[in-house]
């Protein structure tokens, strides 16, 4: 069921990559920020984590938009590795700032429903995990509709396909890029917020999910939305089944090996359309 979250995180990652061709190393840090925001809203204002989605997601969009404008835009035309370094620098700043401000101690938010389960057959499904899964699917569907039907969605897809062409037909590419980064951040923030009721918060918590999300994105094809969704579910399933047969770390090796294999053989993923390297 964590697969749904992976898919949502991967969706943000792939959206940013698809439009801007940037691999966002700070993705996990953005998720961590959203989780702390949720935690803080709940402890200070007694705002339910699910209600705080209404705060964290728009805030994340604005934050992502601003980050793109202030930090990523200056290196858009720089060599690819400089963009990587930029997001890496951003991650270093955010993670260590969180460490200074929030301390390394993992924190847990206990809600009335944290331990609630739905008995389905012999299994008991944890309610927050189920909600996170459902939420991820809903948000993904919403995003798909936005991308398909709205003007900004069309502009995003156009900019993703052909940057110069999009600029020629009058699409404000810099703004579209900022919107893409904002949306990507909003996705990962939503995932972070929905993870809080069943997971701890700590400055490095983003890595727990995002490393897997990288695999998901590569698996589904960098920049492919359906790919991210399918990849997320696939990795989710493999991880739970793998957990039954392979123990902890071996499963990790298997995932990294799969990751390398796909990058080597099919860098466009299982659903991605191969284009000239």
């Amino acid at each position: 069921m964590v697969g749904g979250l992976y898919a949502l995180i991967a969706l943000g990652l792939t959206l940013i990559f698809g439009v801007m061709k940037i691999i966002n190393f700070a993705h996990g840090s953005l998720m961590m920020l959203a989780m702390y925001a949720t935690f803080w809203l709940a402890t200070t204002f007694h705002l339910d984590p699910y209600l705080s989605l209404a705060v964290t997601v728009p805030a994340a969009f604005v934050f992502g938009y601003a980050v793109q404008r202030g930090v990523i835009a200056p290196v858009l035309n720089a060599p690819e590795h400089n963009q990587l370094l930029m997001t890496l620098g951003l991650a270093l700043v955010l993670d260590n700032l969180a460490l200074v401000v929030f301390k390394a101690d993992p924190r847990t938010l206990l809600t009335a429903y944290s331990q609630s389960t739905l008995p389905i057959g012999p299994l008991r499904l944890n309610l927050p995990r189920l909600l996170a899964f459902a939420g991820a699917v809903v948000i993904t569907a919403l995003l798909a509709v936005v991308l398909k039907t709205t003007d900004i969605g069309k502009a995003l897809r156009a900019a993703a396909e052909e940057r110069d062409g999009a600029a020629l037909v009058g699409i404000p590419v810099p703004r579209v890029y900022a919107v893409a980064f904002g949306l990507g951040t909003a996705c990962v923030a939503a995932a972070g917020t929905m993870a809080v009721p069943f997971f701890y918060v700590s400055p490095d918590v983003g890595n727990v999910f995002v490393i897997t999300a990288f695999v998901v994105v590569v698996l589904g094809g960098l920049g492919s939305f359906p790919g991210a969704l399918l990849g997320g579910l696939l990795v989710g399933v493999v991880e739970s089944l793998g957990g039954l047969y392979l123990h902890g770390s071996l499963a990790q090796i298997a995932i990294f090996a799969l990751f390398i294999l796909i990058l080597l053989v099919r860098p466009d993923g299982i659903l991605g359309t191969p284009h000239a390297a």
């Binding site: 979250l5 944890n126 995990r129 123990h247 902890g248 770390s249």
Partner: peptide, 11 residues
């Protein structure tokens, strides 16, 4: 055995 950073330990 489990991975200390695992997001889920249901299995």
């Amino acid at each position: 055995p489990h991975n200390a950073g695992a997001p889920s330990l249901s299995n």
